[in-house]
Amino acid sequence: MKKYLLPALLSAMLVACGSTGTSTDSAAGVSDAGVGVATVTAPGMSGSGIAALTDPNNILSRRSVYFDFDSFTVRSEFTSLVDAHARFLAQNPDMRMLIQGNTDERGSREYNLALGQKRAEAVKQALLLLGASESQIESVSLGEEKPRCEEATETCFAENRRADMLYSGEF
């Protein structure tokens, strides 16, 4: 059931990011007439520019792979998702991907960073098996540091045991 919520969550996140950036920039724009203000866009604001990656009706807009507790195995329900991204990468050899592994908040921060790395690496290996190339993908970990859900409940823990796939322009 969780997976049907993802496109909505993702687009909500993108909208939130966009509005934050705009309000900050316009606040800085209050100045004397004639004094130019150059807008600097931080990395991650531009997006990939490819509609398929954000179209909620396209499987490529789904970016998260979820894991069981203490597990690093890509569950079979995510095979079609990983396969779609692997084919997209193979067809677009200039496209780069950053995979960020995440964990729930229980336990040591550094140990969780290593667990998140295992999750990111598992997704990377699956993508490589399905046709993506090594040079396109970097797998990293955010450990327990960037939880999507911040309550100490099993639902939240499950939401945070996850690897996210980001394309060029999104990180």
Binding site: V140, S141, G143, E145
Partner: peptide
Amino acid sequence: YVSFEAKKP
């Protein structure tokens, strides 16, 4: 220390 300011550790 470890900083995540570059979107990775």
